[in-house]
């Protein structure tokens, strides 16, 4: 009897876990039926291209959410990294140093907000919110509001080049996700990330340095955000002081849509991939079926909100 109950509850849990996958399939079928141009290889390439930057950023966010923290500074960190890379290039810093410096700056700022959260106890939403202002301010300060067109050649290649017909951007995104997945799944650090998120107190009791884990995931999030920025300017063809500011909600939203718990400990890169695809298909599909362009954001918002409700209900179920 008890055995049976636990099996049905396991099935129910499994169904809940797979809900994002069903959502994705439903969206694909829906748009496939209602749009002639949706089901083409070219369009799938478009979708991947559209979510590639989000994927790079989302990899780091996945780490952060798994420890039950949040990073609200990622989009501004991407902007800043892009600006720094362009600024250093304009200043004739030899390549590829502008990119290295850009990534280091982003990582360092991530470490600052991570340490503030881990060692001083400032809630991460607050420390990263403040950090987003710093990053955004630095971008403005460096550019004086102008648009920078001197980009590192590597950024241009990765942002808009192709190899064997595949966009470098998509390859970078796939590699970032892959590395993230390997770290989370097959390293001790990855396990510490999950356990810290699942129950920080218990992790501490088992000798896990949870503060260091939290500080490090914030560094990782800042690094992947910086990477998105460095590649992103190549795709845009320029670095502006507000280039990626709009990406914040999409990046966090994609991770949550995939089913990674906001309360930590549950989820991962496969979930994030599904979430990215849901967001990509949705955006792309809405264009294809020619909905009122002004309703697009509204519909995306409603779906994201529904995903949030689901995320919370899911977590609540498991508590009881």
């Amino acid at each position: 009897m008890a055995e049976k109950r636990s099996r049905t509850s396991r099935l129910a849990e499994r169904a809940r876990e797979l809900a994002p996958v069903w959502t994705l399939l439903a969206l694909i079928v829906f748009f496939g039926v209602y749009s002639e141009s949706f089901f083409t290889l070219e369009n799938f390439g478009n979708i991947l291209n559209q979510v590639a930057l989000l994927a790079i950023m989302g990899t780091g966010i996945t780490f952060v959410l798994l420890t039950a923290q949040i990073d609200l500074s990622v989009s501004y960190m991407a902007t800043l990294a892009g600006v720094v890379a362009a600024y250093a290039t304009a200043g004739h810093l030899p390549q590829p140093w502008p990119i290295v410096v850009a990534l280091l700056v982003a990582s360092f700022l991530g470490w600052i907000s991570g340490a503030a959260t881990a060692y001083l106890g400032i809630p991460s939403f607050m420390s990263t919110l403040a950090m987003s202002l710093i990053a955004s301010g630095l971008s403005l300060y460096l550019t004086r509001g102008r648009i920078l067109f001197d980009l590192p050649p590597l950024s241009k290649t990765l942002g808009s080049g192709r190899i064997f017909g595949v966009k470098w951007l998509v390859i970078v995104a796939a590699l970032t996700l892959l590395v993230g997945h390997l770290v989370l799944r097959y390293t001790r650090f990855g396990r510490y990330v999950y356990m810290t998120g699942a129950n920080p107190k218990a992790a501490e009791l088992a000798g896990v340095n949870t503060r260091r884990v939290v500080a490090w995931v914030m560094v990782i999030a800042a690094f992947t955000a910086g990477l998105a920025g460095v590649v992103g300017i190549g795709r845009l063809g320029s670095a502006t002081p507000t280039a990626f500011d709009g990406m914040l909600i999409d990046a966090i939203g994609a991770v949550v849509l995939g089913g990674t718990s906001l309360f930590g400990g549950v989820g991962g890169i496969p979930q994030t991939v599904v979430g990215l695809l849901i967001l990509g298909v949705l955006r792309n599909g809405l264009d294809q079926v020619s909905v009122n362009i002004y309703a697009k954001t509204l519909i995306t918002g409603i779906i994201l909100f529904a995903a949030l409700v689901f995320n919370i209900l899911f977590a609540g179920k498991k508590e009881s």
């Binding site: 699942a198 129950n199 218990a202 009791l205 498991k318």
Partner: peptide, 29 residues
């Protein structure tokens, strides 16, 4: 050390083996 409350010491949503191995991951992963 085993704390007085199970809730603080264990990861209820993680499998037993992950609960058991956590302090020893440097040699047992």
């Amino acid at each position: 050390y085993v704390p007085p409350s199970r809730r603080t010491g264990l990861f209820l949503e993680k499998p037993v083996y992950q609960n058991v191995s956590l302090p020893w991951l440097d040699r047992l992963f």
